[in-house]
Amino acid sequence: MEKGRDSRIRWNLLFLVLLAFSGCQRTQGGLSVVGSTSVEPFAEALAEEFMHQHPREKIFVQGGGSSAGIQAVRTGAAEVGMSSRNLMKGESDLISIPIIYDAIAVIVHRENPLGDLTLDQIRKIFSGEFTRWSEMGGKDKIITLVTREEGSGTREAFQTLIMGEKEISLGALVQDSNGAIRQVVSDDRNAIGYISLGLVNERVKAVKIEGIEPSVENIREHRYKIVRPFLFVFTSEPRGMAKEFLDYILSPAGQNLLVHEGLVSMRTEIDRPQVGKR
């Protein structure tokens, strides 16, 4: 019995040691990139490609939210912060570099006769003030609102870029991914939702906002305004590996990778995204 306990303790110790090591690895050697959960999947794809080209380098990408990322950069816990919102007043001591842009499209069913909404109408629809399509000249049907869950970066962006102070109605259906929202909207004639522009496909219709179509040209010309930048945040001019990684992202290869994921590059030589790829 005594012996059994001894060996158990030893196993436990081994486990703890392994756990400690696995924690250490993150901080030892390599670049840590922390922040927005909206940017995270793209940063991971970029890091993977970068590490493939530079097998000796290590990049650790971690989520946590834009504010957490900015905080991590400031305290030195991470070299690079990811943010899917612009820096606020108190954060102006930091350097932010936009790596790519993400547009949000408001989508309705293909057969919805309405194709153009004003910002005010969208606000009133999503806050629950307008409940029927007829209030905007459509059919006399109850609007099915579809939104993302609380905590989602896309919802946060929609809230700040369109809703402002108004809250999204609690009666809205909640789906936990862009794809699920697209699915609901493509099935329900009376539905309206919002997703990343890159995920709009032929099964749904992206409405014009204030008469402006969400197209790559309109985004580059700053006409379509429902756009958020994905930022990399640094405390000082990036150097060393952080600079190498940033340079890779801003290079045509990095930008192309992001554009293929449905984001919009401001560099005009980069192809327009293949809408509806996913």
Binding site: T37, G63, G64, G65, E149, E150, G151, G153
Partner: peptide, 8 residues
Amino acid sequence: GIEMGYAT
């Protein structure tokens, strides 16, 4: 289930 993904 639906909100645990990004909740902090």
